[in-house]
Amino acid sequence: MTGMERTEIRLAGSGGQGLILGMQILFRALGLEGKRAAQSQSYEPTSRGGYCYSDLILASDPSDYPLVTGLDMIAALSQVGIDRSLPFIKPGALVIVDERLVETPPTGPFKLHVLPLSQRAAAIGSPRIANIIALGALARLSGVCGKDSLETAVCLETPPKFAELNIAAVRAGFAIERLAPAG
């Protein structure tokens, strides 16, 4: 439309799932690759449990509109997260939803991946790292950023005592073939 590169990414779910932190990690990873971005998030009194999202706009023009106009990719960790984001998803977009937390996966003209993100998180050691696994899967499927950058960024943005767990989460996300549900 304008000849300038622009990619719109959302992490959606419920408050408390680390969606904003997740996006900060992706922002950092992209920064390590020399890319500029703008991050915004839902900012409302309801946080824990309620609808929450964080958006990242990757644009070659730093003055470009910094909010979502049409999502190129989304990872959703709750039903409300995907349902309320649906109107913003572009045709052909990459859509990742959690197999357990999104009971009714969306239908539409996009590339849908239903993945056991939260189960894998629990298996690795903490349900709280589902956001990082989602990021890894998103990066692996879209190529938006490299594994090394994401691993470095996750260490820079989270406490050192969780570094091992978070790196394991990034790797689990990148090992998307093993994440794909049977059948």
């Binding site: 500029r36 971005a37 703008a38 991050q39 915004s40 998030q41 900012y43 910094p66």
Partner: peptide
């Protein structure tokens, strides 16, 4: 405005 206030940019 609130958007610019809470926006994170490079």
């Amino acid at each position: 405005d609130q958007i610019i206030a809470h926006l994170i940019e490079t």
